[in-house]
Design a protein around this nucleic acid. Structure first.
Length: 472
RNA sequence: GGCCCCGUCGUCUAGCGGCCUAGGACGCCGCCCUCUCAAGGCGGAAGCGGCGGUUCGAAUCCGCUCGGGGCUACCA
């Protein structure tokens, strides 16, 4: 039987890295097994769904390199299917109608809490007669449909990464599957669709592990024979071990993209959060990961998202890109910043020099600022006060100005300024930050000699002279 | 509170009874290279949560305990 997996995002915001990791693992499994990767938009909660997010999530998945195989399913277009399923459950007695108001339910839970009982529906609507239901409905009370869970016994399923997972049915009370506004809930839609889509493997976050029992119960009641294999992935946590949230920096994939993280790097990094190949490889291409991916090697414990390691990996990928490719990746960030003074030749030369040490596309684009600053170039006060404290700043600048004014115009000749500095009895490394600031406006940046060559003699000398003048 | 899942360096992980005086990577520290450094090279500190068992032998198996996370909605 061919593998069919699905990624089912709720379009209530941008794609979260946790969701992206779930999508990625589904995709990896499908590609590794030559199976089918499907998308299902879970938009039954109309109050939280926004159409723009549907497109945005698709764009993000494509950017990450995750392609899907068939037209995405939309739960909002399948409401009649879910309600028909609910009717069948009603007819078979697996579900029943309830007419409790939210106030009554709140009061019920308050009572249970006071009595030391866990919260949950007490089953008060289970045995209403048809007449009673009609009467309650006539009162204008809200009508919901609840699924009837067993009172005894255990629910057991085998998870591909966790093994056997079991829970007592007595701890799961009857739950709502159709809201009072007539719309279906997650559990129902999930069971109906996994059946209809012939999903063979459900790969998702561990936060959903407890819902599996309920979805599986509905599935069985609906006549589903063979259940899909479930695989619950460890959660991704932030540094304080709490769930990833917007309060703690970037959590949306688009945030990383905007920061200049490469899709290759995020793909690679996310692959290694909760999974590892059976060797020491870390920097891996998508085909490498696809070839090595198995559910058996998915790890069990929650993983903390390490931004530092992501940045390191991003640098690795920046170095692996061809120059032409890197230029195209940096371009939008550079155009955004230097639109007016943008010069293609200078830009490409700058990226060439910066590729070796950059960690993000944004940091690389930022380092190019001095090349496009023109007459607006200035060294910020805080930078200046930090770099002007080197030994003999005036003598250093005088010597360098003299050198740059007269030397041949190539990197090696420009670099001979080191000798001029040494002659002053100084170690070049100790005073270079002054020169970096004078030329690039920052204490550290693109390699200086290349930068001076790129800038040209006239502008370079002018900037050095300006710095000298500032010393007084 | 109840239920479920999880527990190897700060972090991601390798490990599936002897190959482990626990390996790799990020980060950190030091040194080197050197024109800054966000790159490169070399080296270092750093971990099996705890307690009992099983066994000739346990990071690996079992129990308890402690700790972390998740769920407990007319969200998904």
């Amino acid at each position: 039987m061919s593998v069919r997996v699905r990624f089912s995002p709720a379009p209530s915001g941008e794609l979260h890295v946790g969701s992206a990791r779930t999508a990625l693992f589904n995709w990896l499994y499908a590609r590794n097994t030559d199976g089918t990767f499907l998308i299902r938009i879970e938009d039954t909660d109309t109050s939280r769904t926004r159409e723009e997010w549907v497109d945005a999530i698709g764009d993000t998945l494509r950017w990450l390199g995750l392609d899907w195989d068939e037209t995405p399913w939309r739960q909002s277009q399948r409401i009649p299917e879910y309600l028909a399923a609910a009717d069948r459950l009603l007819a078979s007695g697996d579900a029943y109608e309830c007419f409790d108001t939210s106030e009554e339910l709140e009061a019920m839970n308050a009572e249970r809490k006071a009595a030391g009982l866990p919260p949950g529906y007490d089953g008060r609507g289970r045995d209403l007669t048809a007449d009673q239901r009609a009467a309650l409905a006539a009162e204008g009370r809200p009508r919901t449909v609840r699924f009837r869970t067993p009172d005894t016994g255990r629910s057991v399923f085998t998870d591909a990464v966790r093994g056997e997972v079991a829970v007592e049915w007595s701890t799961i009370s009857d739950f709502v599957i159709v809201r009072s506004d007539g719309s279906p809930l997650f559990f129902l839609a999930n069971a109906v669709d996994d059946l209809a889509m012939e999903i063979t493997h459900v790969i998702r976050g561990e936060d959903l592990i407890d819902t599996t029992h309920r979805v599986l119960a509905i599935r069985r009641a609906l006549g589903g024979v063979e259940a899909p294999m479930y695989a619950h992935l460890p959660l991704i946590l932030q540094a304080d071990r709490a769930k990833l949230s917007k309060r703690h920096g970037a959590v949306a994939v688009e945030d990383f993209r905007a920061r200049g993280i490469l899709a290759e790097a995020l793909f690679n990094y996310l692959s290694l959060l909760g999974w590892a190949p059976d060797d020491d490889r870390e920097v891996m291409t998508a085909p490498d990961v696809v070839a090595a991916f198995t559910l058996e090697r998915v790890t069990h414990s929650a993983a903390i998202f390490d931004d530092k390691k992501l940045e390191w990996m991003n640098g690795e990928w920046i170095r692996r890109l061809s120059l032409a490719e890197l230029v195209e990746r940096v371009r939008p960030f550079a155009v955004e910043r230097y639109g007016d003074g943008f010069d293609e030749g200078i830009f490409v030369a700058g990226v060439t020099v910066g590729q070796e040490r950059a960690s993000t596309l944004v940091s690389l684009a930022d380092q190019l600022a001095f090349l496009f600053a023109g007459d607006a170039f200035a060294v910020a006060d805080d930078v200046w006060s930090q770099v002007s404290t080197v030994d003999q700043p005036a003598a250093v600048l005088d010597a360098v100005i003299r050198h740059v004014t007269g030397c041949d115009w190539n990197v090696d000749s420009i670099g001979e300024m080191r000798a001029a500095i040494t002659e002053l009895g100084l170690k070049p490394g100790k005073v270079m930050k002054l020169l970096y600031a004078a030329i690039e406006g920052r204490a550290a940046g693109l390699p200086l000699f290349d930068s001076i060559e790129l800038l040209g003699r006239e502008i370079s000398v002018a900037r050095l002279v300006a710095a000298r003048a500032r010393l007084g």
